Amino acid sequence: MAIVLGPNRYGKAETRLVRVFRNGDTHGLVDLNVSVALSGDLEATHATGDNSGVLPTDTMKNTVYAFAKEHGVGEPEEFALLLARHFVESQPQVHGAKVSIESYAWDRLGPHSFSKRGDYTRTAVVNVSDAGTQVVSGVIGLTLLNSTASEFHGFPRDKYTTLPEATDRILATAVDARWRHAGLSADWAASFGGALDALKSGFVGTYSYSLQQTLMAMGTSVLTEREEIAEVRLALPNKHHYLVDLSPFDLTNENEVFIAGDRPYGLIEGSVVRDDAPAATTEWWL
């Protein structure tokens, strides 16, 4: 029996970068969390500890900071593409680079004053390899709630089923979404803003009989509005809200007072894809 090295990669995770752009008295601010992972001809270091092909992860960190100064930081997809291509092109032993970025938004309060926005985190993941270049954008933690226009009934029941059927319930979720671009020439800012708006409108505009139905509607909304996007993958936790029993206080509760549940929660995951979309160059999920 032979024992061989399987797929592997290494890199520098979560390099925190804050870039200030000083344009006279008015400043700009970019706040990123950058992770780099490289793959390629790395068998020697695993087998014998030969590090002649191992670019130090400290160098990866330094590259992030140096590129932020030398090239600036635009949209996260643009910065990730710049970094990933650099590592593949400058290191002959590296055949693939994955750069993942979380982007934290700040709202302007004044010329040099900002307030951190907390309703979601923007993401971008770029893979550059021999198979091609792939860009995946997304959001994590986009919290949405409909106070009505949601039902859930007609499900199978067995002896362990206690859940009552619902014809008017709160539907709440914290969306983690990723969308794969069909090409590399998108206006990244406009594409992200449009996809985010489409996710929200798909949620708002759907009378929901299940969270699965809402997932499909949200993904369809993105693909309908944004032709540059080939596929959308979503994870929707069902943030349960339980009706409070107010009868001990001689009060009725007509879908007005709820307990916001924490855990456990239902988790609905799925993808919505164009049937004519180009295939992914590397496997990806949330």
Rank of each mutant, 00 (worst) to 15 (best):
G11Y: 01
L32M: 03
S39I: 00
D41H: 05
R16Q: 12
I3Y: 14
R157F: 14
V204D: 09
H95S: 15
V139K: 07
E151W: 02
Q213P: 15
R178L: 05
G96R: 12
V88T: 13
E70R: 13
G132S: 11
T123H: 07
R233T: 11
T63A: 14
P248V: 10
F21Y: 11
R9H: 14
L32P: 00
G193L: 04
G261M: 08
N127E: 10
V125K: 15
S103W: 01
G141V: 03
N33I: 03
L17W: 01
F155H: 13
A13L: 14
G110L: 09
L246Y: 03
R157H: 15
T143H: 05
V244S: 00
R226E: 09
L55F: 07
L184S: 08
A97Q: 09
G132N: 11
L55W: 00
F79Y: 12
A230L: 06
R122E: 09
T252K: 04
L196R: 13
S185P: 00
L286S: 05
S35L: 06
I3M: 06
L38M: 04
R157E: 15
Y104F: 12
F21P: 00
L83Q: 10
D25Q: 06
E165C: 14
D187K: 04
A84Y: 04
A260Q: 05
G110I: 03
L38R: 01
V36F: 02
L223M: 07
L83N: 13
A177F: 01
L142H: 02
M60Y: 02
L246F: 05
N253I: 02
M60H: 04
R117N: 06
S201K: 14
E14K: 12
T281C: 07
V232W: 06
R9K: 13
D262R: 04
T224L: 12
T167P: 00
K12H: 06
N8H: 10
R157S: 15
G266H: 03
P248K: 10
I101C: 13
E43S: 12
L196P: 01
A80Q: 07
R122T: 06
G270S: 12
A235V: 12
L81E: 14
A186G: 06
S35E: 03
P7H: 03
T133D: 08
S185Q: 10
W179A: 04
V99G: 13
L196G: 05
S137H: 08
K200E: 10
P156R: 14
P92N: 11
A190E: 13
T162D: 15
L184N: 09
H240C: 01
D31Y: 00
D31F: 00
D176T: 10
Y10H: 07
D250H: 07
L251K: 07
T121N: 04
A279L: 05
E78H: 14
G53C: 09
G6S: 06
V272A: 11
S185N: 09
L82K: 14
